[in-house]
């Protein structure tokens, strides 16, 4: 490992900031899913970078679980996008107001 832990952590912080920017600014459902993906990947990068300091492989095992659960989340999220698009014919979340009280 030639790069140090702080480098990976800073990359992860940058990705987290970009993801939160996307969640705050974008109103397109699909783009918000992109932002969530970016945030999840920043978290995975942190898990593996800190797990490198363990003498055993638990960090990598945890990262594998995290990746698999993120895959499940994306499958459900994409099908929600398809259902919402079918109902409203749009991907703008400002239009998805039927649950608003």
């Amino acid at each position: 490992m030639t790069s140090e832990l702080i480098d990976f952590t800073l990359v992860s912080v940058a990705l987290l900031g970009i993801g939160i920017y996307g969640l705050a600014v974008k109103r397109n459902f699909i783009r918000m899913l992109f932002a969530v993906e970016i945030i999840i990947n920043a978290a995975n990068l942190n898990i593996v970078a800190f797990g490198r300091f363990l003498p055993h492989s638990s960090g990598q095992t945890m990262a594998l679980f995290s990746i698999a659960i993120a895959a499940a989340e994306v499958a459900v999220g994409l099908s929600l996008i398809i259902v919402a698009y079918r109902m409203y014919q749009n991907v703008d979340i400002a239009d998805f107001r039927s649950l608003k009280g």
């Binding site: 490992m1 140090e4 832990l5 702080i6 952590t9 490198r52 300091f53 363990l54 003498p55 055993h56 492989s57 960090g59 990598q60 095992t61 594998l64």
Partner: peptide, 16 residues
């Protein structure tokens, strides 16, 4: 963590 470095050998992926 700025000064953290490790001398641990890389974990063997067979352990996973």
């Amino acid at each position: 963590i700025k000064t953290m470095t490790t001398d641990e050998p890389a974990p063997d992926f067979r352990d996973i």
